[in-house]
Every structure is written in C-alpha cells, then in structure tokens.
Nucleic acid binder design. Structure first.
Lengths: 221, 221
DNA sequence: GTCTATACATAGATAGAC
DNA sequence: GTCTATCTATGTATAGAC
C-alpha cells in the first residue's frame, strides 16, 4: 500500500483514538516510520488529510442512509438505516468529537458539512414521509412535526458516540452501545410508530445484541 | 475588578467567540493588556482557569434545573426549565463545543462533567415523574421509556447550540434560536403531554419570541 | 500584584539532497 | 518517492526585578 493511503489511515486511527487535536503531522509521520517531508510530499497540509477523510465519511454516510430505500420500508431495513449510520459515526468519531474546531479552521469543510447535515435532515424527513405512506408511522399533529422529528433524530445520531464517551471517560465504546443508540433513536419515533412495525424493529436490535454477545464470548469466529 | 476575575471573564468571552482551542494564556493576557507573568500569578495553569469557569457552569446549570420545582409543575415553569438551561448552554457554549478535547486533557474535569450529566439525566427523569404524578404526562409503555426520554432531552439540550452553529457557519446564534431549541425539546415529549399543558407551554415560547422580536426592533429598551 | 525577559516544547511547513 | 535538516510560529510556563 502506498504511503499516501497509509497516511490517511494512520491519521484516522490516531485521531479516533486520541482526538483530532492531539494528532499532528509529525506524529503521523513518526508513527508510520516515514519522514515529515514525505508526508508533505503527499499532502499540501494537515487540513488536506482531514478533508480526504471527511470525503470518505460523507460518502459512507450518504450510502448508508440511501441504501435499499425502495418502498415500502420494512422494519428491518429501517433499523438497518440507523445501525449502519451509527456505525459510520463510530468509524469517524474523531470528526464528531472535534467538529466545531475542525470546521472553524476550514471554511470549505464547514460548508460541506453544513450541506451534509441539511441533506441528511431532508432525507430523514423523506424516509419518515415514506413511512407515513406505508402506514407504519402516524403523522404528527403539528405541521412542522416531521421536520422537528428529523432534526431530533439527527442531533441524537450525530452526538450519540460522544455521549457514550463522556458518560464513562475511561471506558471504551462497544458495538452494544451503538445498538443502544438505535434504540434511543427509535424511542423518539416510538409514539408515532405502528406497534407491530416498532416491535419488528426492536427485534432486529435484540438479534444484533445477541450476535454481539456471542462474538464477544467467542472471539474466534 | 481584580485581574483574577478579569482573566476568567476574558477567557470565557474569547473561548465562546473563537473556541477553547484558539485561546491561549498569552492571548488572554494580551487582550487584557496584562503580562503573561501576571496571569500565572493568579492561576497555576490554563486548566485551572477553565476549571473555574466550569464550576460556574456546573452551578448555573444545576440552579436553573432545580429552581422553582415545587409540585405540581406548571407549563410555564416547565418551559422555564428548558429556556433557562439552554441559556446556560449558550453562556458557556465554548465548553460544549470543545468538550471532548477539554475532558481528555483534564481527568478531574472529565469526572466532574460525567457527574453533572448523570445528575442531570436523573433530575430530568425526576421532573418527568412529577409530571406523570401531576397527570400532565402519560407514562410511556416501555419500562425504560422515561429514562430514554430523559437521555434524548439531555442530548438535544447539550448539543443544540452546536447544531445551530454548524447549520449556518457564518451566522450568529440568537435568542430565537434558543427558543426554537425549547420547541425542539418539547417535541420529544409532545406525544405524551397533556394537550392543554403542551399548549400552555408553547404559549410561553410564542410570548418569548414576541418579546425577543420587539427587543430586536427597539434595542433602546 | 504586576512587570520584563526568557526558557522550553511542540507543531506546521519547507529546502534541497538522495 | 523519500530522506535529513531546518525554519518559524505559537503556546505554556517560570525566574526574578519592580
């Protein structure tokens, strides 16, 4: 694998582990056993590395939210949206952790992320609208209810990992925390969901939790 | 006013404006027209300044959430909890913006904030329980529903300001954004709220919005 | 309490050899 | 494509005079 790619991956790993601020260009180079000069041959500056990573995040998130959206939306697929996107939030957790600072220092990144956020909220609203058509969701009374719901889902989604990290500073985030996050998102919608749809969605979580517990007990597989 | 206090206030202002990371000790001293040495006479290090500010935040938040909690809880008081606490989140927005980084570099701060978070979620759950006793809120079906609701309220609360900041990178956060945030929090509870209780709560927001619009139109007052 | 001067570490970035 | 060497800027913090 070329050094360019190795730099990006090391940067992502280190930043996820220690936060974006703690990771500088010299640190990345050190860790890879290459020279700072080499790193700067591949990238104009530190921002550029982060931007490359952000592009992956952006693409992964959009793919996770758009994948398999054909109507009607099954509870399994609906739970899948949440689970896949939370997985993305986990894989790029450094970004959400240090977001404000990263965006402040890079206007282009700020604009792009604002765009992703706007798109995400619209798309979530679209999914909710589809659920209403499918009769899996009751329309909220207030006109702005759907949008408000989409915003709340987005906020909880984009901050769930941080919430877990802060709750237990010395603990690590595990897959069951992600599954718990999906439950948390479902709870926002619960009062509007068709009971059997909700039940089926929750079953997916129970199944995932079981799978995780088994893997944890038997790491061989 | 003594320099110690001026340092704390300047630090808070600068960090709120530019993010905690962008503000160093030399910058604070510069801005106040005092020497770095003077700053270090008053504080052991930068962490200590942040800790002093955090202590205010902690106290202000607790006071805002506990103030005037006698049962039964009126819709006006309930809306007041949200409005006052969001005001606190706004006054110390630097902390929420750079939280993960701040907590990573200061174990004591991390422990204290984790404590505040746990207390807050418990206290919110307590308020919801009181609302159920008052018959202003319907108990959610799931056993863990109340707690989940409290967590969602907390997550949206603690990240609302950041959400607004990121939504419009070049815009400023105004009081009407805070009021919108209260609406957002109410929406999480809406399906469980007694309709007349909810209506009265919303009226508080309309009134606050009107007050803000008038003040904006007539800054003299 | 406050100042000047300075030490020290680290991070971002570049020049030029190989 | 990669290296060594180095520059520059900045931030944290201290020593010692006033």
């Amino acid at each position: 694998m070329g050094n360019r790619k190795r730099i990006v991956e090391m940067c992502l790993d280190l930043m996820n582990e220690e936060g974006s601020r703690a990771v500088g260009t010299s640190r990345i180079a050190d860790e890879l056993g290459i020279s700072p000069g080499n790193l700067y041959y591949h990238f104009k500056n530190r921002e550029e590395i982060v931007m490359v990573i952000y592009e992956d995040l952006d693409a992964d998130f959009r793919a996770a939210l758009v994948e398999d959206v054909h109507a009607p939306i099954s509870p399994e697929r609906f739970a899948g949206f949440f689970l896949r996107t939370l997985q993305v939030a986990w894989e790029y957790r450094f970004f959400f952790g240090g977001m404000l600072h990263l965006l402040r220092r890079d206007e282009e990144l700020a604009a792009r992320y604002a765009g992703l956020q706007a798109w995400a909220i619209d798309t979530i609203e679209g999914i909710l609208t589809q659920l209403i058509k499918d009769r899996s969701l009751t329309r909220p009374k207030a006109k702005t209810g759907l949008r408000s719901m989409a915003i709340n889902l987005w906020i909880v989604w984009s901050n769930w990992i941080r919430f877990i990290q802060v709750s237990d500073p010395s603990g690590e985030v595990r897959r069951d925390h992600l599954i718990q996050g999906v439950g948390q998102l479902l709870d926002i919608l619960a009062p509007y969901l068709d009971p059997s749809f909700e039940k089926a969605g929750r079953r997916v979580l129970t199944r995932e939790l079981k799978k995780f517990a088994e893997e944890a007990a038997d790491p061989a597989s």
